[in-house]
């Protein structure tokens, strides 16, 4: 298991060197989106309209933060469960999204699309909302403000600690990790 420092947006060559279990410290520009924002972005794409942010090379973080206190850029900002975005993720991969940050297992259509479009799935520590807050240096709502905590935000992150939980070769740490530690019987 290797350790990398990467800067978003990502390219194919960043993605293909990553294997499940690798540790990554991610810096750069990423976007937040959850259920409602995914639905709207996919609807725009299907109508042939321009999405509200550059999807090519993008890293999308599934998060709905708490409101920031005055003088802070964001509140607690840990990952949400990925499975609710499974219906939309392959469409975004087709548009060039290179990575997702969330927590929890993905379905086969997402995993197959990750192989087809060379995409990586990073796990962030669920519930570590205060710790991850420290890695977020800037936050700005760039679309769907009416969605409140679910609006799309552009984040500048520094050394965001991640683990590769799904790689672009079909590897799934939720399956492999458990296999290693499961007791027979």
């Amino acid at each position: 298991m290797a350790e990398y420092r990467l800067t978003a947006p990502l390219k194919d060559e960043d993605v293909v060197k990553l294997k499940i279990g690798d540790k990554v410290l991610l810096s750069g520009t990423i976007y937040t989106a959850r259920d409602a924002a995914h639905k709207r972005v996919v609807e725009l794409l299907d109508k042939g309209e321009k999405p509200p942010f550059e999807i090519k090379g993008s890293v999308i973080y599934y998060v709905g933060p708490t409101p920031p206190r005055p003088g802070m850029v964001i509140g607690a900002a840990g990952p949400t469960t990925a499975v609710r975005m499974d219906a939309y993720a392959p469409r975004l991969m087709k548009e060039g999204m290179k990575a997702m940050i969330a927590k929890g297992k993905r379905n086969d259509s997402v995993k197959n699309a990750m192989v087809e479009y060379k995409v990586v799935y990073f796990g962030a520590t669920g519930g570590a909302g205060a710790l991850i807050n420290k890695c977020i240096k800037k936050a700005e709502v760039v679309a769907f403000e009416d969605l409140g905590p679910e609006a799309v935000r552009k984040l500048e992150v520094e050394d965001f600690p991640l683990i590769v939980v799904g790689d672009s070769f079909g590897g799934d740490l939720y399956i492999e990790g458990r296999k290693k530690w499961q007791k027979a019987g």
Partner: peptide, 13 residues
């Protein structure tokens, strides 16, 4: 960090 009372433990409160 959260115990300082500035940022909640988890965003899903």
């Amino acid at each position: 960090i959260a115990a300082d009372g500035v940022v909640p433990y988890c965003q899903d409160t």
